[in-house]
Write a protein that binds this DNA or RNA. Structure first.
Lengths: 255, 255
DNA sequence: GCCTAGGTCCCGTAC
DNA sequence: GTACGGGGCCTAGGC
């Protein structure tokens, strides 16, 4: 629900509008003339001015000024948020539930108002494909282990495609399986298939940003190993090498 | 300027609307169905969903999901922001000027749109930062210890910046480190760096409202000292000494 | 440009 | 619950 005519409403009606949006846990955006006080881990006061106020569906609270990346005032969820009427203003009180902190905002007039349920089911990935990861590892085998030597990548076996095949510092043949997301039991079973086909005396390392407790138990029981890799670090390597190989302007221009 | 009818506009008109708002450096708020890609220090992809997009007057850029305090994507200013038309979408490209980072957003439809110059001249005051604490201590060195004399504050050493440097009642050189929150191991490590650089015969006091057991053990083992300070007491001093008819006191009276 | 340190840091995770 | 480390941390201040 969008209300472009908010400035024609009375203070009472405005307060009621916000109260209703809050009680139905809608996402609220206000562009308004306001002042704000914070008391908690520190104290602050923000004099009157026009700002963006955001109240999210989980009661996350933000006040943004017209410039600067960071909010000038904020409250992490969960919060208790209440509305009341002051002199010529609507008073918004935002209290954190788990800590003694509060922001009190006096809103004098509105330039914009929006409130609605937002539908956002899209997931967020810090992404690198498994192929990209194995390419990085081929260039930087030390990320697997010091002294590691890669023999081949994407090696086709009957049991499936082995991401990385190599030899460790002690000369042992080693299978490396990459998972770009948290590894579960399926990943461990997959590695087990490879190991059983490869025969005895073969090491196996599961590389992923994380592993479930169940999967780790199964992995240990079967003498496999797990090594954590950081997607952030890997993507930094990619970015860095893109820059040295190609000009920065090409990178900045686009894909 | 508020446009509640944005969803009736064509993609071209919408792009033009945004382009105009950008060129006149207005504050822009959009609630829209979008997807976003980030490439820079890391890489990420955000699938389609409804979010709040904010472009500030200094080109600060933020994408907020319906929940969580922190933005899912952002770009600190200054940025180069450009608009183009894709298939069934408006494409927003935000490139940081000083770093090789970009966010590319595809916007498929709008639920809300606002753009205008915001007028915000109100100032923002914060109380009880570490700097303010050291200012209070400068005026009231007895809060550190009876007979304490402050030589300098924020003294620059190779190992870092020493909050307070002084001489105690017995004439010993003393380093004082202030932490406004509970002090952890990091704080002790920091003081240790200072002490090791300063050489023998130098006292060091860690001043903070509290200290973790681990940190205190490490501190005692290394011959450092800890003194508890009360933030409440300090803020009382500030309140008492601040006598200007500020909007802060006006605000507090009006409550 | 680098490094250092602070932040109402926020956030996850191990204990 | 608390403590500890990481973040696309961001930001400010020196050098």
């Amino acid at each position: 629900m969008i209300n472009a005519m908010i400035n024609t409403l009375s203070l009472q009606d405005t307060a009621e509008l916000i109260r209703e949006a809050l009680s139905s846990r809608r996402f609220i955006v206000m562009i308004c003339m306001c002042e704000a006080q914070y008391i908690g881990r520190a104290r602050s006061f923000l004099e009157k001015g026009e700002r963006l106020i955001v109240i999210k569906e989980d009661t996350s609270f933000l006040i943004h000024r017209p410039t600067e990346l960071e909010p000038v005032n904020w409250q992490p969820p969960p919060n208790h948020i209440s509305i009341s009427l002051g002199e010529n203003c609507v008073i918004l009180t935002v209290r954190r539930v788990r800590k003694p902190e509060r922001v009190v905002v006096k809103i004098y007039s509105f330039k914009g108002f929006f409130s609605d349920k937002l539908s956002d089911n899209g997931s967020f990935h810090m992404h690198l494909s498994e192929k990209e990861i194995s390419e990085i590892l081929r260039k930087h085998p030390e990320l697997i282990e010091d002294g590691f030597r890669i023999v081949s990548t994407e090696f086709r076996e009957k049991a499936g495609i082995i991401d990385v095949l190599g030899v460790d510092a002690k000369g042992r043949r080693t299978i490396v399986e990459i998972k770009k997301d948290k590894a579960g039991k399926d990943a461990v079973k997959q590695v087990l298939r490879y190991v059983r086909e490869a025969g005895t005396g073969v090491r196996a390392i599961l590389l992923s940003p994380n592993i479930t407790p169940e999967a780790e138990k199964m992995l240990r029981k079967n003498g496999l190993e797990f090594k954590k890799i950081s997607m952030l670090e890997l993507s930094r390597i990619i970015t860095y090498e893109e820059h040295s190989e190609s000009s920065m302007s090409r990178f900045l221009r686009g894909e």
